[in-house]
Amino acid sequence: MAWTWFHRLASPPHVYRLSARLTPWLAWPAALLIVAGLIGGLWLAPPDYQQGDGYRIIYVHAPSAWMSLFVYTTMAVAAGIGLIWRMKVAHAVAAASAPVGASFTFAALVTGSLWGKPMWGTYWQWDPRLTSELILLFLYLGYMGLRSAFDDVQRADRASAVLAVVGLVNVPIIHYSVVWWNSLHQAPSLMYLGKPTMPPSMYVPLLIMLVGFTLFYGAVLLVRLRGEVLSRERAASWIREAVRA
């Protein structure tokens, strides 16, 4: 079968060992890129002509917001794969992703409101980005709440997977409806930058940060994945070696 390579690749012991081996290859580049992005964003990038130095929050806010969506998508896709093909490793990926995504959604909310304060004069505005972010946080909390309500890992995996997939279908609808709602009430929206085009000295650090954050997610995911894979395996002989190692 053409699928055998795939199944071998997705077998728990293989995934466990591979994740252990890959983690440093993601973690160090992530650390490097984030430090580079920090230097670029905080020192090298010029102040914005409208927002001065206040715009520098973008270098943590935008990557966090990106993570919130990217992790949710990854989680839901993995959950869907686990649901359809009954693949434990895919469920483990979904389970490992949720807390990471939720925490970055939280960071995106806090940094967004800190950015909003000097611009709006208030920490909270019902602007579409922040509102969508808040709803996304609720989706994450619902997912994790449902997961923890089950004693049995298998059932938790499968039930929460249904929720994740339903959530993924809903995210664009929610986002669209929130934007639509916001356009009616003409509330101020979080303007990312004053100028329509950013000079490279501004956007290159942003790109570096985006990649750095994504790699960071990868590294954390791999560590968590090992834990999740272990808790889904029962008395298999490979565990003994893996745990000792």
């Binding site: 001065g52 130095d53 206040g54 520098r56 929050i57 806010h61 940094t111 800190l114 000097p118």
Partner: peptide, 15 residues
């Protein structure tokens, strides 16, 4: 941070 320090630094700290 051009006077924006009460917002910029907490944002970085939280992240």
């Amino acid at each position: 941070m051009g006077g924006y320090w009460p917002f910029v630094w907490p944002a970085y700290a939280v992240t």
